Simulated assay, not measured.
Amino acid sequence: MSTPSTTLLRFLQEENARLQEENKQLREELAALRDYLDGLRLLQQEARRMTEEADLMPLLDKILYAALTVTDAADGSVLLLDPETEELVFAVVHGVIREQLVGYRIPKETGIAGWVVTHGSPLIVNRPHLDRRFSRQVDEQFGFKTRSLLCVPMIGSEGRIVGAIEVLNKFSGREFTQADQDLLMVMGYIAGSALEIVLNKFEAQ
C-alpha cells in the first residue's frame, strides 16, 4: 500500500521526467530554428550573387553549391529541361559521380526529378527504393546508392519550369525535412528567375 510520501515522490519523479522531455524538445526546436534562419541568410547572400551572374555554367554551379549547403547534402545535381528533346539534362553535378553524370540525359517524366518537373511540385523521398516514382537507372548504371533525396522545380517568374534541383544523402545520415524542402523551394524560385534571365539573353542572341 502506497503512503502519501511515496505517492508524492512518484509524482515528483514523473513530473521531472516530463519537464526534462519538454526541455529536450524545446532545445531541438530551437536548434532547428537556428539552422533554418542560417539557411535563410545564406539564401539571401546567394540570391544576390545569382542575380549578378551573367554566364550560365557559373550560375548553375552557384545554385547547386547553395542547395547542398542549406540542406547539408553530400550529393546533388541541377537538371535542365531541354524543350526540343523533352529530356532532362544533368547540367551540373556535385558528389562522387560528378564526372560520369554531367551531360547525362533522361526522359523528362523519368524518376523523382521527372515527376517534380512534370507536376511542378517539390518532393521528399527518404526511402527511395520503396517509392515507385524513383528510377534506379542512375544508381545501377553508375554504382551509386541513393539513401534519401529532395527535389524541387526551378520555376521562372512567369511560371515556366526550366528544370529541377535535386539533393541526395545528408552528411548526417538523417532524413530530409519539411524545413529543408521550404528552403530549397525558395532556392528553386530564385534560381528559376535568375536562370530564366540568362536563358532569355542566350535565346535572343
Rank of each mutant, 00 (worst) to 15 (best):
L101K: 10
L101W: 13
V102W: 05
V102M: 12
G103I: 12
G103D: 07
Y104G: 04
Y104N: 06
Y104C: 04
R105L: 07
I106D: 09
I106V: 15
P107R: 04
P107G: 09
E109C: 01
E109S: 14
E109D: 15
T110V: 15
G111V: 10
I112D: 01
I112W: 05
A113P: 08
A113I: 13
G114V: 06
G114A: 08
W115V: 05
V117P: 11
V117W: 01
V117M: 06
V117L: 13
T118D: 10
T118V: 04
H119E: 14
G120K: 02
G120N: 10
G120L: 04
S121H: 11
S121E: 15
S121F: 03
P122S: 13
L123H: 08
I124A: 08
I124P: 04
N126D: 09
N126T: 13
N126P: 10
R127P: 00
R127G: 02
P128I: 01
P128H: 10
P128G: 02
H129D: 04
D131M: 05
D131C: 07
F134M: 01
R136D: 10
Q137A: 12
V138P: 01
E140W: 03
E140V: 08
Q141D: 12
Q141K: 15
Q141P: 01
G143R: 06
F144V: 01
K145C: 03
K145V: 14
S148P: 05
S148W: 02
L149P: 00
L150G: 03
L150F: 00
C151E: 00
P153K: 03
P153I: 06
M154T: 09
I155T: 15
S157V: 06
S157A: 14
E158K: 14
E158P: 04
E158A: 15
G159P: 04
G159C: 07
R160I: 10
I161H: 04
V162W: 09
V162A: 07
